[in-house]
Amino acid sequence: MTDRETLTGDALDERFVELLRGVLPAAKRARPITPDLDLKAAGLDSMATIELLLRLEDAYQVTLPDSALNGRTFATPAAVWSAVREQRGA
């Protein structure tokens, strides 16, 4: 499965994209959110990562396991979405 399919495969969740947009800094918000966007370069620092984690867990009623709480999970929108989907399916 490619990154793009990870997102589109679940009917490109608009709410997810909006949540993500909401935690990225205004100065860097102009660019489109693509599945393979480098989130760190887009301004997702530690604090924003944690904010995103809490909002996602709340919105999708999931709890990401300790093993998913690292930089790799939050590297791209596709990686984040796949971690969330894994818990929704679980």
């Binding site: 620092d45 530690s46 604090m47 990562t49 944690i50 300790d66 690292n70 930089g71």
Partner: peptide, 29 residues
Amino acid sequence: GPDEHVGLPALMRAHGATVVPVVPSLAEM
């Protein structure tokens, strides 16, 4: 490092952290 901040409580438990220097943003996290 910053990539590990989101997993800090698990890291603290795994190593048995006893002393943690914080700035306000880290305390908040």
